[in-house]
Amino acid sequence: MAEPAAVRVDAWVWAVRLYKTRSAATAACKAGHVRIDGERAKPSQAVRLGAEVRALTEGGTRIVVARRLIHKRVGAAIAAECLEDRTPPPPPREERVLVGVRERGAGRPTKRDRRELDRLQGR
Protein backbone atom coordinates (compact mmCIF):
# COMPACT_ATOMS: atom_id res chain seq x y z
CA MET A 1 0.00 0.00 0.00
CA ALA A 2 1.40 3.41 -0.99
CA GLU A 3 2.05 6.02 1.66
CA PRO A 4 -0.32 9.01 1.48
CA ALA A 5 1.02 12.42 0.39
CA ALA A 6 -0.64 14.15 3.35
CA VAL A 7 -2.53 13.19 6.52
CA ARG A 8 -4.82 15.19 8.82
CA VAL A 9 -2.81 16.68 11.66
CA ASP A 10 -5.20 15.50 14.39
CA ALA A 11 -5.00 11.92 13.10
CA TRP A 12 -1.20 12.04 12.74
CA VAL A 13 -0.41 13.41 16.23
CA TRP A 14 -2.74 10.77 17.70
CA ALA A 15 -1.25 7.97 15.56
CA VAL A 16 2.34 8.80 16.61
CA ARG A 17 1.22 8.87 20.25
CA LEU A 18 1.60 12.55 21.11
CA TYR A 19 -1.99 12.47 22.44
CA LYS A 20 -3.82 9.57 24.07
CA THR A 21 -7.07 9.90 22.12
CA ARG A 22 -8.11 11.24 18.74
CA SER A 23 -10.61 13.56 20.41
CA ALA A 24 -7.85 14.97 22.65
CA ALA A 25 -5.74 15.61 19.55
CA THR A 26 -8.66 17.37 17.84
CA ALA A 27 -9.34 19.49 20.95
CA ALA A 28 -5.66 20.46 21.16
CA CYS A 29 -5.72 21.58 17.52
CA LYS A 30 -8.87 23.63 18.08
CA ALA A 31 -7.31 25.26 21.16
CA GLY A 32 -4.21 26.27 19.19
CA HIS A 33 -1.83 23.88 20.95
CA VAL A 34 -0.62 22.29 17.70
CA ARG A 35 1.48 24.16 15.14
CA ILE A 36 2.79 23.06 11.76
CA ASP A 37 5.92 24.93 10.62
CA GLY A 38 5.13 27.71 13.10
CA GLU A 39 1.50 28.23 12.03
CA ARG A 40 -1.56 27.27 14.11
CA ALA A 41 -3.08 24.09 12.76
CA LYS A 42 -6.76 23.31 12.43
CA PRO A 43 -7.65 19.62 12.99
CA SER A 44 -8.16 18.98 9.27
CA GLN A 45 -4.94 20.65 8.14
CA ALA A 46 -2.54 18.39 6.27
CA VAL A 47 0.82 17.20 7.56
CA ARG A 48 3.39 16.49 4.87
CA LEU A 49 6.76 14.75 5.03
CA GLY A 50 9.43 16.91 6.66
CA ALA A 51 6.93 19.23 8.39
CA GLU A 52 7.86 20.43 11.88
CA VAL A 53 5.00 19.85 14.32
CA ARG A 54 4.95 21.52 17.75
CA ALA A 55 2.42 20.10 20.19
CA LEU A 56 1.71 21.24 23.73
CA THR A 57 1.17 18.04 25.72
CA GLU A 58 0.88 17.18 29.41
CA GLY A 59 4.64 16.66 29.56
CA GLY A 60 5.43 20.03 27.93
CA THR A 61 5.99 21.18 24.39
CA ARG A 62 7.06 18.44 21.96
CA ILE A 63 8.85 19.37 18.73
CA VAL A 64 8.82 16.62 16.11
CA VAL A 65 9.46 16.30 12.38
CA ALA A 66 7.24 14.04 10.28
CA ARG A 67 9.37 11.25 8.75
CA ARG A 68 6.53 8.93 7.76
CA LEU A 69 2.82 9.61 7.41
CA ILE A 70 0.34 7.30 9.10
CA HIS A 71 -3.34 7.81 9.88
CA LYS A 72 -4.01 4.73 12.05
CA ARG A 73 -2.58 4.10 15.51
CA VAL A 74 0.29 1.59 15.44
CA GLY A 75 2.68 0.07 17.95
CA ALA A 76 5.07 2.32 19.84
CA ALA A 77 8.15 1.03 18.00
CA ILE A 78 6.63 1.80 14.59
CA ALA A 79 5.28 5.15 15.79
CA ALA A 80 8.78 6.15 16.92
CA GLU A 81 10.05 5.56 13.37
CA CYS A 82 7.42 7.95 11.96
CA LEU A 83 8.85 11.02 13.67
CA GLU A 84 12.15 12.64 14.56
CA ASP A 85 12.03 14.09 18.06
CA ARG A 86 13.73 17.51 18.29
CA THR A 87 12.41 18.40 21.73
CA PRO A 88 15.17 20.00 23.82
CA PRO A 89 16.05 18.14 27.02
CA PRO A 90 14.42 19.43 30.22
CA PRO A 91 16.46 21.86 32.33
CA PRO A 92 18.57 20.45 35.16
CA ARG A 93 16.78 19.97 38.46
CA GLU A 94 18.62 22.93 40.03
CA GLU A 95 17.28 25.37 37.40
CA ARG A 96 13.62 24.42 37.72
CA VAL A 97 11.29 26.98 39.23
CA LEU A 98 10.03 26.24 42.71
CA VAL A 99 6.31 26.62 43.15
CA GLY A 100 4.74 27.11 46.54
CA VAL A 101 2.17 24.42 47.27
CA ARG A 102 -0.72 24.98 49.65
CA GLU A 103 -2.84 22.26 51.11
CA ARG A 104 -6.31 21.99 49.66
CA GLY A 105 -8.86 23.65 51.92
CA ALA A 106 -6.24 25.72 53.76
CA GLY A 107 -8.22 28.87 53.02
CA ARG A 108 -7.05 32.20 51.76
CA PRO A 109 -3.31 32.92 52.12
CA THR A 110 -2.32 35.25 54.92
CA LYS A 111 -0.08 38.26 54.37
CA ARG A 112 2.86 36.20 55.62
CA ASP A 113 2.01 33.33 53.23
CA ARG A 114 1.77 35.79 50.33
CA ARG A 115 5.22 37.23 51.16
CA GLU A 116 6.73 33.73 51.26
CA LEU A 117 5.16 32.86 47.90
CA ASP A 118 6.47 36.09 46.38
CA ARG A 119 9.95 35.39 47.76
CA LEU A 120 9.92 31.87 46.26
CA GLN A 121 8.84 33.24 42.89
CA GLY A 122 11.58 35.89 42.93
CA ARG A 123 9.33 38.95 43.12
Rank of each mutant, 00 (worst) to 15 (best):
S23H: 10
R104F: 12
A11Y: 02
A5Q: 07
R114K: 11
R96L: 15
A28T: 06
A11P: 00
R96W: 06
A28S: 12
E84A: 14
E84C: 01
A2D: 11
P43S: 09
R119T: 14
A77D: 14
R54M: 09
P43M: 11
Q121V: 05
V34E: 08
K20V: 12
D118P: 00
R119V: 14
D113R: 01
P109D: 07
V64W: 08
T87M: 04
G122Y: 03
A6L: 01
R48N: 07
Q45S: 13
M1T: 10
A24Y: 01
A24H: 09
A80L: 04
E81A: 12
A77W: 03
A27H: 10
E81S: 12
G38P: 06
V7M: 09
R73H: 06
A66G: 04
G50W: 04
D37F: 08
A66V: 07
T57Q: 02
L98P: 00
R108Y: 06
E103H: 11
G107W: 11
E116P: 00
R35D: 00
A79F: 10
T57D: 02
W14P: 04
V65M: 02
A76T: 05
V47Q: 11
R93D: 11
I70L: 14
R73F: 10
R108E: 09
A106R: 13
S23K: 15
K42D: 10
G38Y: 05
V9W: 03
I36Q: 08
R102I: 04
V99S: 12
V74W: 02
L98T: 09
H71V: 04
Q45K: 15
R22Q: 13
R123P: 00
Q121K: 13
P92A: 15
R86Y: 01
R40V: 04
A5F: 01
A24E: 12
C29Y: 10
R62C: 10
Q121I: 02
A76S: 08
R123E: 09
E95F: 08
E94V: 12
